[in-house]
């Protein structure tokens, strides 16, 4: 029992379960899933479907955060990616052709990869702080997206393109399968190869890793490329969902929700150890919360207040001060301020 309590995913999973239970009690139809025309419908299915863009972005963000970085540009990259895809489809002679959509999606994702590589270059080669380096693209990216669409919201009518976000395969939404594929790909690459542990090593102690011969530049660079690519795919899904490229609204604030998902999943913003499963749960928590807030009749524009409360609760609960307080309650013999000063004491103990 004690071990379960201490597991790093204990709190995230518990939070998600509590959210689902509360929702189910408040509105039993929440867990109802109905089969209609060979498709499953229900609030839970909606959560799976709607969480896809955030899922992709949060996965990339997890890897970047593991390297001690952060990628603020993901929303802007989504906007660019959507703009590229929609513009290609819009300008082509046959917007409804699968080939056109295929080319558009590939080009959009490649452009995003290049944008990710640009971020990675600034961070790993020029050694610019990640917050600032990605801020550049966060600022400029939407401008680029607006230029691509000519300042308008480009809309298209393309069956195959709409299929990406709203289509169904094997009873379930296509977007959900895209999420699954991304999760599987990231998890496989990180955990089946040595990339995961080398990434953690770079995130925990960059200098020690360099001296141990780890090619940290490549690993950091790669992390931003992954993040850019996944953000590009997210941008395509977003654009497919609204059948339009909206350079201003696409991916707005998604970087914040993605960071929140990563933190909720138990990955420290200080870098190092990361948890893909944790991030996945974090995304579902956010999406379920969003659904709950909507159900409560709160206008979605007001939902940030709830997320602010969540952020504060999570960071306060994670803080040494709170842990110290909890530890004191649990263990009266524990020294009063020991938890707060652990870091300094390690220094002396060396």
């Amino acid at each position: 029992m004690n071990r379960i309590y201490k597991h790093r995913l204990f709190w995230p999973v518990l939070s998600l379960l509590v959210l689902i239970v509360v929702n189910t009690i408040a509105r039993p139809q929440f867990i109802e899933i109905t089969l209609q025309d060979g498709r499953l419908y229900g609030a839970l299915i909606d959560i799976l479907r709607n969480s896809a863009p955030l899922m992709l972005v949060a996965l990339g963000m997890t890897i970047v955060i593991a390297t001690r970085g952060i990628d603020l540009s993901v929303g802007a990259v989504m906007a660019v990616s959507g703009a590229v895809a929609l513009t290609i489809i819009d300008r082509s002679g046959s917007p409804g052709a699968v080939g056109t959509v295929f080319v558009a999606v590939i080009v959009a994702i490649l452009v995003s990869l290049v944008l990710g590589a640009w971020n990675g270059f600034l961070v790993s080669v020029l050694k610019i702080q990640p917050i600032i380096a990605t801020l550049v693209l966060m600022l400029a990216g939407r401008g680029v997206a607006l230029l691509i669409t000519g300042g308008f919201i480009t809309t298209v009518n393309s069956e195959p393109f709409a299929f990406i976000a709203s289509g169904y395969v094997l009873l379930l939404p296509v977007a959900f399968f895209i999420s699954i594929a991304a999760i599987a790909a990231v998890a496989l690459v990180e955990r089946r190869t040595a990339l995961g542990v080398l990434t953690e090593s770079v995130g925990i102690n960059p200098e020690a890793s360099r001296l141990a011969g780890v090619r940290s530049r490549g690993i950091i660079w790669g992390a931003y490329m992954v993040s850019g690519t996944l953000a590009g795919a997210a941008g395509v899904i977003y654009a497919s969902n609204i059948k339009a490229a909206d350079a201003n609204a696409a991916g707005l604030f998604i970087e914040l929700y993605a960071i929140l998902a990563v933190v909720l999943g138990g990955t420290s913003l200080a870098g190092g150890k990361f948890s893909i499963a944790g991030t996945v749960i974090g995304v579902f928590i956010i999406q379920t919360l969003e659904s709950t807030i909507l159900f409560l009749g709160v206008p979605s524009a007001q939902s940030p207040v709830f997320f602010a409360v969540v952020v504060v609760v999570v960071v306060v609960a994670q803080s040494q001060r709170m842990r110290g307080a909890i530890a004191r309650v649990g263990d009266a013999f524990r020294k009063q301020d020991a938890p707060e000063r652990d870091d300094e004491k390690v220094e002396v103990a060396r």
Binding site: A194, V197, E200, S201, N205, E207, A212, K273
Partner: peptide, 19 residues
């Protein structure tokens, strides 16, 4: 410049080989 403190003993030992 040496240790990667949050990794395990095993991970630290094989880090050089793996790199």
């Amino acid at each position: 410049e040496g240790l990667v403190p949050d990794l395990t003993v095993a991970e630290n030992i094989v880090l050089g080989m793996q790199a």
